[in-house]
C-alpha cells in the first residue's frame, strides 16, 4: 500500500483514514499532545481513494488499547488502526461503531443523573451515518460537534 509507505515507524500505532482536518482532535482525545506523549508523525490532507483527503497519525512506541480506539471512532468512524512491531504491521483493524458506547462520552446534559451520581455513562447508537447517540439515562440525543466536545 503506497499510502502506508510514508515514514514507517519501528514500533507503535498508525491511525489511518482519519477524515481530513481531524488529526488534531484525534491526538487531543488520545492525550498525545502532552510533552511526554511520545513522538508523533502526522500527515494531513493525504490523497485517499476512500475519503478524497485524509489524515494519518503515527504514534511511536505506543500501542493503542481498544478503549482508546473507541474514543477515536466517535470522531473518525472511518479510521483504521495498524499496530506496528519491528517495522511490520502485526495487527490491523477497522474501527466500527458499536451499538452502545460505555464510559467514554460525558452526557452534555448537566441535569442528567449520569453527571450527578457515580454512574458510568452509556449511550445507544441511534444512527451511524450521521452519528447520533441517545443517552441511556436522560434519553437526550447528541450528535455532530457535541460528540467530540464531550469526549
Amino acid at each position: 500500500m503506497p499510502e502506508l509507505k510514508i515514514e514507517v515507524i519501528p514500533e507503535g500505532t498508525v491511525i489511518d483514514h482519519i477524515p481530513a482536518g481531524k488529526w488534531l482532535k484525534v491526538i487531543e482525545i488520545l492525550g498525545l499532545t502532552k510533552p511526554n506523549g511520545g513522538t508523533l508523525l502526522i500527515a494531513s490532507n493525504v490523497p485517499s481513494k476512500k475519503l478524497g483527503r485524509k489524515d494519518i497519525v503515527k504514534v511511536e512506541g505506543r500501542y493503542l488499547s481498544e478503549e482508546e480506539v473507541n474514543k477515536i471512532t466517535l470522531i473518525a468512524p472511518s479510521a483504521t488502526v495498524n499496530i506496528v512491531k519491528d517495522y511490520k504491521i502485526t495487527e490491523k483493524f477497522r474501527v466500527g461503531i458499536p451499538e452502545e458506547i460505555f464510559d467514554i462520552l460525558r452526557c452534555p446534559n448537566p441535569n442528567c443523573i449520569s453527571n450527578r451520581e457515580y454512574v458510568k455513562s452509556r449511550f445507544h447508537v441511534v444512527s451511524k451515518e450521521p452519528l447520533k447517540l441517545r443517552c441511556h439515562y436522560c434519553e437526550r440525543t447528541i450528535e455532530g460537534d457535541e460528540i467530540p466536545g464531550n469526549l
Binding site: 446534559n109 441535569n111 442528567c112 443523573i113 449520569s114 450527578r116 451520581e117 454512574v119 443517552c135 441511556h136 439515562y137 436522560c138 434519553e139 437526550r140
Partner: peptide, 25 residues
C-alpha cells in the same frame, strides 16, 4: 428532579421501579 434517575433506580433495584417523572424527561 434529574433526568435518568428512574432508569438508574431501576438498574440498582431488584424490585420493580415505576417512573413518576424524572426531570424534564
Amino acid at each position: 428532579p434529574s433526568e435518568g434517575a428512574a432508569r438508574l433506580a431501576a438498574e440498582v433495584a431488584e424490585i420493580p421501579v415505576i417512573n413518576a417523572g424524572d426531570g424534564s424527561n
